[in-house]
Write a protein that binds this DNA or RNA. Structure first.
Length: 920
DNA sequence: GCAAGGTC
C-alpha cells in the first residue's frame, strides 16, 4: 500500500475557515500554497501529504454551507399556477442557485484532475447532506472519483491527523434525514403560506403593514410555533385575574441594624384565616429565636459560552436583538477577535490551551490585571471551567482569539460584545464567589418567620464579570432562644401579578427547549415574526403578538389544530432521527408525513371560516374581495357598560356556548358568560323595565332540561342586566360555557358564575359587577343585589338538608350557601350573611362537623380561634363594626389596646393593614 | 411573493 503513484485529492470543507485550519494543520504550514478559486471567499490551499503511506497532492477548498436549494419545478413556482394543495405532490428539484455557481465551477474544475474526493463537512446531519451535494457536483464531471469522509470533532492537530488516516464512507441516512426535512418544510410552508395569504390579504384591511400589497402571511414549521409561544404567554398575561393575598411582615430594629423577617407561609389568599393568625401574633408578640444557621455559600461562574447563551446575555445585558448580536459576532469572528460564533458547545476540550487565551488579555487596560492574577498560581484564582453538557463536536465555546485594544473603527456594539466574550471567558476559568450566609428563624405565637443576611467573603469571578451581582445584606446577631419584641408586625395585602410577556431571552429558551430552529437560525425566526408584522418587541425586549399574529393563531386554534404549537416540529424531529438511524426510510417518512399534512391542509381549508372569524375580530373587511364568508355579528342586547362605546351582542363562542360580548373585542373584553345548559337563545324586542342603563333586551332562552334542576322551566324569558334571579341561579348551578384558560377572557368563574372582564395591555383588571357594573366589588357581593327573597328561592336545592340557607347567628338574616373561589379554598362551600352590616361567615364543612364558625383551615394547619366572632371579620379593615372581636390587642411596644383597633395607631376605624401611619 | 438550513 505504501508509496506508489502520487494521487490528487480534492478536500472540501463546509466553510473557508475550516479549509484554512485543516490545511494548516495537515501541512504543518510547510509548503502550503494558496490560490484563488472562482469564488472570492473560497480559496484553494495546496500541499503534499501522505494518507496511509500513499503520497497525495492535497487540494483543499470549501463551500459556504449548502451548495444546493430545493424548489418546485418551474410550472408550480407562480402562486396562482396551481392549487396550493397540489404542492404536496408537485415535483421538486435540487439545484445550485445563481450565487453558488462560482463555487460549483471551482469544484468541477478541481475534481476533473483528482482521483479522490475527501469530504470535511461539519459532522452533523446538515454537514452530511452538504457532503452529498458536493459529491453530486463533483461526480457529474468525474464519475471515477473515490469518495471518502473525514470525521473530526475539533480543529485540533491530533483529531485532524487521525481523521485523515481513518477515512470512512459518507453516511447516506444522515443526508436523507435532511432531504426529508427540506422537502416537508418546503411543501408545508409554501402551501399554507399561499393559502392564508391569498385567503386573507385582500379580504381585510390589514393596517399593520406599511404597504399591504407586499404583505405575505407566511406559515412555517418554526416561525409559527415561535409565534405560538408569544401568543400563548400574551393570553396568559391577559387572562390573569388579580387575586388579593395577605401576608404578615415583621421587622426588628436593634443597635446593630434592622432585620426584616418574612412569614414562612409566604402568603394566604384567605383574609379570614390571615387575620386570625395575625391577631394571634399580635396578642402575644414575643419573638423567640428558634434557629440560627450560618453557612458558606458559593456562587458559580457561568458555563463556557455558546450561541444561544451569547444571544440571551447580549439581550439581557445590552438589549441587543439576537439577530443583531449574531451580525456583530460574525464581524468579530471575521476580524479574528473571537472564535466561531455558531456553536452549541459549552465545555472546553481538555486540549484547549486556556492559559494562552488568558495571556492574550493581560495587557488590556481594564481587565488586564485580572488576567494577570488568574495566571498567578499564588493568587489561587484559577479554576478549570465547568461543563455545560453540550458539544456539537465541531466548534469550541465562543472565546476571544485575539487581543482587541478597541482603537479600530468598530462600533460600540462590537466593543460591548467583545467585552462580554472576554469577561465571560475569564469568569469561566475563575473561582466561584464565596459568601457567608446567616439564616435566622423566629417563632411568634406558633408562626414562623425567617430573615437572612449575607456577607461576601471573596468576589472572585464577580470581579471580572460585571454583568452579574450578588447582593450582601447585614442583619443583627441573634442567638438561639433569644427573645425580643418586634419593632413592627403588620398584616399586608398584595395582589397576584400576571406572568410577564416573553423577553427575547425567554423566547430563545422556549425555542431551545422545544427544539424549534437551531442555534444558528433561532434569531432568524424571531426576526421573521417582526418582519411579517406578527409580533412586536417593546423597549424592554418583551414580545406581544400584533392583531395579525393573534388572529392567525386564534384561527388555527379555533379549528382545533395545534399548528402553532411545537408538537409538529417535535414529530418531524423524531422522524428525522429515525431516518438518520436507518429505522425508517426517507420515502416512508415523506409519504406518511406529507399525507398527514395534506389532510390537515385540506381540513384547514374547509374550516377557513374560523380564520375569517378570527381575522374579523381584529380587522375590518375590505371590499377588495367578494366577501363570500359571512361574519356573524350577533344581535344587540344592550350598550356595553364598560367601554360605553360599543354594543353587547349575543353570540356563541367557539365551543357553541352562548355569551354576550362587546363588539369592540379585543379592545374591550367585557363579556357575560351564559349557562352551559342553554340550547337556544334569541334576543327579543322586549325591554327589561328594571335594569339600567337601558334599553336591555330580554333574551328568550331554552335550556336543556336534563342539565337544569327539575324545578326550573326549560323555557325562560330572561335578562342579563342583573335583575334575573333565575338566570343567576342557573349560572351558579350549571356553570358557564367559558373556556379555561381563556384568551384574555378571564380564566376562572367567579362565585356567581358570571364573569366580566375587560383588559387592555398594561392595564390592571378587576372584574366588574354584573348587576351595577362597578368594579369595587364582584357580582356576588353586590349591595344592590341582596334581598330576602333570594334565599327563599334557593330553598329546596340542597337534597341533604332540604334547605340551602341558614339563619345568620348574629342578625337572623337567611344566609345562602356560596362557593369560594380563592386559591386556597376553591370550590369550598360557605355561608355568609348578606346583610351589609353583618359579617357572619362560616364554612359549610365546619358546620357539618360541629365546629361551626370556630375554625379556619388553611395551608394544612388547623388554627382554633378562641372567639367565634373572630372568623366573621371578613372584608377589609373597617367593615368589622357590628361584630368586632372583644380580644385585647397588644401594640408592638407591648401596650394593651382594648377593643378592635389598629394596633399601630390605636384608631378603631381601621386595622393595621390599612393604617396610614404604618411603616412610620 | 412561500420554508428552514447552511454560511459570506
Amino acid at each position: 500500500m505504501a508509496g506508489g503513484r502520487t494521487i490528487n485529492v480534492l478536500n472540501v470543507a463546509e466553510k473557508p475557515s475550516v479549509a484554512k485550519s485543516v490545511a494548516g494543520i495537515l501541512s504543518r504550514n510547510q509548503g502550503l500554497r494558496t490560490r484563488d478559486g472562482r469564488s472570492r471567499y473560497n480559496r484553494i490551499f495546496e500541499f503534499n501529504y501522505s494518507i496511509n503511506g500513499r503520497p497525495c497532492h492535497m487540494l483543499f477548498t470549501s463551500v459556504t454551507g449548502h451548495l444546493m436549494e430545493l424548489e418546485f419545478e418551474e410550472r408550480y413556482r407562480k402562486w396562482h399556477s396551481c392549487d396550493p394543495a397540489d404542492l404536496y405532490q408537485a415535483p421538486v428539484r435540487k439545484f445550485v442557485p445563481e450565487d453558488k455557481l462560482d463555487i460549483r465551477r471551482t469544484l468541477e474544475e478541481e475534481a476533473r484532475r483528482c482521483q479522490w474526493l475527501v469530504l470535511w463537512l461539519d459532522c452533523d446531519r446538515e454537514g452530511e447532506n452538504i457532503a452529498f451535494e458536493v459529491v453530486e457536483v463533483c461526480t457529474a464531471v468525474n464519475p471515477h472519483l473515490t469518495i471518502r469522509r473525514a470525521h473530526f470533532s475539533a480543529l485540533i492537530d491530533r483529531e485532524i491527523h487521525e481523521a485523515v488516516q481513518h477515512l470512512v464512507e459518507p453516511n447516506k441516512w444522515f443526508a436523507d434525514a435532511v432531504d426529508a426535512r427540506q422537502e416537508i418544510d418546503l411543501r408545508i410552508g409554501a402551501s399554507f403560506t399561499r393559502f392564508q395569504t391569498i385567503l386573507l390579504k385582500d379580504a381585510f384591511i390589514i393596517d399593520s403593514a406599511t404597504d399591504d400589497r407586499n404583505l405575505v402571511l407566511s406559515y412555517g414549521p418554526c416561525q409559527f410555533p415561535t409565534l405560538g409561544f408569544i401568543v400563548e404567554r400574551y393570553w396568559e398575561n391577559q387572562a390573569h385575574e388579580p387575586e388579593e393575598f395577605w401576608t404578615i411582615n415583621c421587622s426588628h430594629k436593634s443597635d446593630e441594624g434592622i432585620a426584616t423577617f418574612n412569614w414562612m407561609r409566604g402568603h394566604l389568599f384567605d383574609y379570614t384565616c390571615a387575620v386570625i393568625i395575625y391577631e394571634m401574633c399580635v396578642q402575644e408578640p414575643i419573638a423567640t429565636v428558634t434557629k440560627v444557621r450560618q453557612q458558606e455559600k458559593l456562587k458559580y461562574p457561568p458555563y463556557p459560552l455558546n450561541t444561544i447563551e451569547l444571544e440571551k446575555r447580549a439581550s439581557r445585558y445590552f438589549r441587543m436583538s439576537s439577530e443583531h448580536t449574531m451580525k456583530v459576532a460574525e464581524d468579530l469572528y471575521q476580524a479574528g477577535f473571537i472564535s466561531y460564533p455558531r456553536t452549541e458547545t459549552d465545555s472546553f476540550s481538555q486540549r484547549t490551551d486556556l492559559h494562552a487565551i488568558v495571556q492574550e488579555q493581560q495587557r488590556h487596560p481594564i481587565w488586564g490585571s485580572y488576567a494577570q492574577q488568574l495566571l498567578d498560581p499564588g493568587a489561587g484564582l484559577w479554576r478549570n471551567p465547568g461543563n455545560g453538557g453540550h458539544d456539537d463536536k465541531a466548534h469550541p465555546p465562543i472565546h476571544p482569539t485575539k487581543f482587541f485594544s478597541g482603537e479600530n473603527g468598530l462600533s460600540q456594539d462590537h466593543h460591548r460584545l467583545y467585552e462580554l466574550v472576554v469577561r465571560h471567558f475569564l469568569a469561566c476559568v475563575s473561582q466561584p464567589a464565596v459568601g457567608a450566609e446567616t439564616n435566622v428563624e423566629i417563632d411568634i405565637s406558633g408562626e414562623l418567620f425567617s430573615a437572612s443576611g449575607r456577607v461576601i467573603l471573596s468576589k472572585n469571578y464577580l470581579d471580572v464579570y460585571r454583568f452579574e451581582s450578588w447582593g450582601s445584606s447585614l442583619i443583627p446577631t441573634y442567638v438561639s432562644g433569644q427573645q425580643f419584641t418586634p419593632t413592627s408586625l403588620t398584616l399586608d395585602s398584595g395582589v397576584t401579578r400576571p406572568p410577564p410577556l416573553l423577553s427575547e431571552a425567554d423566547l430563545l429558551s422556549c425555542m431551545d427547549k422545544e427544539g424549534i430552529g437551531t442555534d444558528a437560525t433561532m434569531h432568524d425566526h424571531i426576526k421573521k415574526l417582526l418582519d411579517r408584522f406578527y409580533a412586536t418587541k417593546d423597549s424592554n425586549t418583551r414580545f406581544s403578538p400584533t392583531n395579525l399574529g393573534e388572529a392567525l393563531v386564534m384561527g388555527y386554534d379555533d379549528m382545533g389544530y395545534k399548528l402553532w404549537k411545537p408538537y409538529l416540529r417535535a414529530v418531524m424531529e423524531r422522524d428525522m432521527k429515525a431516518v438518520s438511524e436507518g429505522t425508517k426510510s426517507k420515502a416512508e417518512v415523506l409519504l406518511t408525513s406529507l399525507q398527514q399534512m395534506k389532510a390537515c391542509f385540506l381540513d384547514a381549508r374547509l374550516n377557513k371560516v374560523k380564520l375569517f372569524e378570527a381575522m374579523g375580530i381584529f380587522f375590518e373587511r375590505s371590499n377588495r374581495s367578494g366577501g363570500d364568508e359571512q361574519h356573524a355579528h350577533g344581535e344587540v342586547v344592550r350598550q356595553c357598560g364598560l367601554c360605553q362605546e360599543s354594543d353587547m351582542v349575543l353570540r356563541r363562542n367557539r365551543d357553541g356556548n352562548f355569551m354576550v360580548g362587546c363588539l369592540a373585542f379585543p379592545q374591550c373584553r367585557n363579556a357575560i358568560w351564559l349557562p352551559g345548559s342553554v340550547s337556544e337563545a334569541v334576543v327579543t324586542t322586549d325591554i327589561c323595565n328594571t335594569c339600567t342603563p337601558g334599553p336591555v333586551h330580554l333574551i328568550q332562552f331554552k335550556f336543556r332540561q336534563l342539565e337544569i334542576p327539575p324545578n326550573y322551566n326549560a323555557n325562560h324569558l330572561g335578562c342579563i342586566g342583573g335583575c334575573d334571579e333565575i338566570l343567576s341561579q342557573l349560572i351558579e348551578i350549571c356553570g358557564t360555557g367559558s373556556r379555561v384558560p381563556a384568551r384574555g377572557r378571564g380564566s376562572t368563574a367567579s362565585s356567581s358564575g358570571v364573569q366580566q372582564s375587560n383588559s387592555r395591555p398594561g392595564e390592571a383588571r378587576r372584574s366588574a359587577c354584573i348587576y351595577c357594573q362597578q368594579t369595587v366589588h364582584s357580582s356576588s357581593d353586590c349591595p344592590s343585589h341582596v334581598s330576602g327573597s333570594r334565599s327563599a328561592q334557593y330553598r329546596g336545592m340542597n337534597p341533604q338538608t332540604g334547605d340551602s340557607s341558614i339563619p345568620c347567628s348574629t342578625c337572623g338574616t337567611p344566609c345562602t350557601l356560596r362557593t369560594a373561589n380563592t386559591v386556597t379554598n376553591r370550590g369550598r362551600k360557605f355561608y355568609s350573611c348578606p346583610s351589609q352590616n353583618c359579617n357572619f361567615f362560616v364554612w359549610e364543612d365546619n358546620l357539618n362537623n360541629g365546629t361551626g364558625g370556630r375554625s379556619v383551615r388553611s395551608a394544612g394547619m388547623n388554627i382554633s380561634a378562641s372567639n367565634s366572632r373572630r372568623s366573621s371579620s371578613r372584608g377589609r379593615g373597617g367593615r368589622g363594626g357590628a361584630h368586632a372581636a372583644s380580644t385585647t390587642f397588644v401594640s408592638a411596644t407591648g401596650d394593651p389596646i382594648s377593643g378592635r383597633r389598629c394596633f399601630v395607631c390605636g384608631d378603631p376605624s381601621h386595622f393595621a393593614n390599612a393604617c396610614p401611619n404604618r411603616g412610620s
